[in-house]
Design a protein around this nucleic acid. Structure first.
Lengths: 129, 129
DNA sequence: CGGGATCCGGCTTGATACTG
DNA sequence: CAGTATCAAGCCGGATCCCG
């Protein structure tokens, strides 16, 4: 009874990520997932092509990048612009909605990056025990 | 040459998540991971006990919650307070650092929740093709 | 170049059971 | 209550081959 139909009182929102059944949960996972956040972050600087993205997001495989882009496109965060030339020229860029979400993601990334000294210190303390 | 030693020019930060080797990448994944963000979000309202957390984060298993909490504790985001009573009484709460990060996470969650109508519309459009 | 399709090994995840 | 131990299932990710 704590989370049933996206109509819970945990927050005041119609869509509640804390409920398993709520579609916002899936979207959040795409956005925050292993590659989702980094892909959005990479696109925050402007449109990029597939292999540019691949180089920018260190460690991502073709398959995962492709999969991630599809998910982000389906959720309306990324726009795919394909020009039927030869060789093909495909660009990915953030939609207005995507930009909004990405601003939040980048803000989080910057926060984590900026506090890494504290994090590493905490880890050292934890591991010392 | 795009991402080697956390000393890249992609951003101006010493720690660069876009580099595989950078420790901030691992921390970001804990924070944004499937259960990390929801756990932090649950704790943003105040300290909670293990099973309270479990009920709050719908769908998480004992193992994953335990694992997630350990990771967050190790990274200095969550403090674990155990009182050696019987039955045991353990509380988890955000550290100052954790609260800072969680504020960003909650901001992201609120953003996604608030734009779910747009997301669902985009999905419907995408699937219609 | 920009991917889709497939196969496969391995880490991650989720039930379940058990302990203090 | 607050977890750990164990085990099976499954998804992740790499490699490979393919196409337009």
């Amino acid at each position: 009874m704590d989370a049933d139909e996206c109509t819970q009182q945990v927050t005041d929102f119609a869509y509640n990520v804390f409920s398993q059944a709520c579609p916002s949960r899936a979207t959040l996972e795409h956005v925050t997932g292993r590659w989702g956040s980094l892909t959005l972050g990479a696109l925050s600087g402007g449109a990029l092509r597939f292999n540019e993205l691949r180089r920018h997001v260190d460690g991502v495989s073709e398959k995962m990048l492709s999969q991630t882009l599809h998910a982000l496109e389906r959720n309306g965060l990324v726009h795919r612009e394909a020009r039927p030339t030869n060789p093909p020229h495909v660009e990915y860029e953030l939609t207005p909605l995507g930009r909004e979400v990405t601003d939040q993601v980048m803000s989080l990334i910057r926060c984590v990056e900026g506090r890494m000294d504290d994090v590493l210190a905490a880890r050292a303390r934890y591991d010392a025990r």
